[in-house]
Amino acid sequence: MVELRLIAGVARTGVIGDGETIPWHYDADEQQYKDRVADHPVVVGRKTHEGMTRIRGTHPVVVTGSPEEYDEDGATFVSTVGDAVDAVAAEGDTGWVIGGQSIYAMFLPYAHRAFVSELPETAVASRVFPYLGTDWSVEARHEYDQFEVVEYENQAPLDPENASA
């Protein structure tokens, strides 16, 4: 069974970016992020995928409304949660959901864990991280000099095989 994990850097305002860039940079956050997702499949939206550099050893599972229009070595293009989970399963037993906003929202009900870097930023922008909901509980806190990564666990993740989208 595939375990889905969300990972995001989130400002105090809930912001994750402006649709083009991430409006801050923390070396330690970038490093812990890369260390966690390295050598795993990553589920990512098409626009986010096109705007980022591939992380060592990752296999992008790119969610798009028209997967047949794309072909890229070492990446899989899908349009549904179920197809994304199947693509993750073909690469390993853990998949990291890395954004953007609509992808986080799409996969949130099926995710088992979330690793949220709580950053001391107060940026206002158009892209935000979704509310986790009441089924999520804090499992651990990982302290860094300038921020904290809070690890959440979903007490009732949905089965992606029953996903309609």
Rank of each mutant, 00 (worst) to 15 (best):
F129R: 11
P109C: 07
T80S: 15
E91T: 04
V10H: 13
V43T: 08
T21L: 11
G100S: 12
E118D: 14
G92C: 15
A89E: 13
H142W: 08
G65T: 09
A84K: 04
H40V: 01
P67L: 14
R36W: 00
I98K: 00
A111I: 11
E72G: 08
S102L: 08
P120A: 10
Y131C: 00
E121C: 11
V62Q: 07
E68M: 04
W96L: 09
M52W: 06
S137F: 01
A84C: 11
D71W: 12
P41E: 00
T58A: 03
G100T: 13
I22A: 10
A75M: 09
E30L: 15
H49M: 01
D93I: 02
W136G: 13
L132Y: 13
A89P: 03
K34F: 00
R141D: 12
E121W: 13
V44T: 03
D93Y: 04
P109N: 09
V138N: 10
D145T: 12
L6C: 05
D86N: 10
P23K: 03
G45N: 02
P60K: 12
Y131V: 14
Y110E: 08
R36Q: 04
D35V: 01
V116M: 11
T48M: 05
T48N: 05
K47H: 08
R141Y: 07
L108H: 06
P67D: 10
A38S: 14
G133Q: 12
D83A: 13
R127V: 08
G51C: 06
Q101P: 14
I22C: 07
L108I: 04
D27Q: 12
V116H: 11
R127N: 08
G14I: 10
A111E: 07
S117A: 12
T122D: 15
V88A: 08
V42Q: 00
T80H: 04
A75Y: 01
F129Y: 12
D135H: 12
G65I: 09
H40Y: 12
P60I: 13
G100D: 11
S137T: 14
H40N: 12
V97S: 03
A28C: 03
T48F: 06
D135L: 02
G95C: 09
G92V: 15
A90F: 08
A38D: 00
T13S: 14
A11W: 08
P120Q: 09
D27E: 15
A89W: 01
V62C: 04
R46T: 06
H40P: 00
R56Q: 15
G9M: 05
A75T: 03
E143T: 10
A28F: 00
H25V: 03
T122K: 04
R127E: 10
G57P: 15
Q146V: 04
A114L: 11
V85Q: 01
V37T: 05
T53Q: 09
H25Q: 07
P130D: 07
T58L: 07
G92L: 15
T80N: 06
E143H: 13
D39A: 02
G45Q: 03
T13A: 03
R141S: 15
